[in-house]
Write a protein that binds this DNA or RNA. Structure first.
Length: 197
DNA sequence: CCAGACGTTGTT
DNA sequence: GTCTGG
DNA sequence: CCAGACGTTGTT
DNA sequence: GTCTGG
């Protein structure tokens, strides 16, 4: 879920909302894809100030031999984030927020895929719970990257691998599709991408 | 011991 | 179908 | 997440 | 770096 999101506010607005300083040169973005630079909010627990600064979306653990693992680490499951090798160190001591004002889910009908946008009713900002890490590429360049941790099964314990829809749930209660039913589709993926140019 | 992975989604 | 890059 | 590639030889 | 599978 949440493989793309939106942060379409100007940096002063974001900084004021989250009471951060403003180190990142952020321009409004409507269709943020994995591996792209995003803005994250961090705070040293022993200090009062928060920082809004850039990171690549898709966490690259410090031990990675190349950056490609970042394409698979855009999200961490809340149920396992504390123990997975790629995330657990960050989970202990490198948490952050990923500010956003929306995210996208796609509904598939046969071959067609239609994006839907989700956000606050008043279009206000919110933030994903995040992790970050620091990686040194083979040339020695430091790359900071981040991931979000989200619960895929918020109300179920233990987390099942897959739960078939039950008739009593109306077929697909809790699925992204149920959330999208009756809503107005968003712009297509291509149109969304064009918004960033 | 070494070699290779290290992750999530959604689905039957 | 599956992997890679954005 | 989606979109686009997915391969080699040999050379103007 | 650390764990898992062979």
């Amino acid at each position: 879920m949440c493989g793309r999101y939106r942060l379409s506010r100007r940096k002063q607005f974001i900084a004021e909302y989250f009471e951060t300083d403003n180190e990142v040169d952020w321009e409004p973005r409507y269709n943020i894809a994995p591996s792209q630079p995003v803005g994250i909010i961090r705070q040293d627990p022993s200090r009062p100030e928060r920082h809004f600064s850039p990171a690549r979306w898709g966490l690259i653990p410090s031990w990675a031999s190349d950056a490609s693992i970042g394409f698979k680490t855009i999200n961490a499951r809340a149920e396992t984030v504390a123990t997975k090798p790629a995330f657990r160190d960050a989970f202990v001591s490198r948490r952050c927020l990923l500010p956003a004002d929306g995210f996208f889910e796609w509904m598939r009908s046969g071959k067609e895929k239609q994006p839907f946008h989700f956000g606050m009713r008043d279009d206000s900002l919110f933030a994903f719970a995040g992790l970050w890490d620091r990686w040194r590429d083979p040339a020695g360049t430091v790359i900071e990257s981040c991931s979000r941790w989200v619960s895929a099964y918020a109300n179920r314990s233990p987390a099942p691998k897959w739960v078939p829809p039950r008739e009593a749930d109306g077929g697909d209660l809790g699925s992204a599709e149920a959330l999208m039913r009756g809503r107005r589709p968003a712009l297509s993926a291509k149109e969304l991408g064009a918004c960033n140019r």
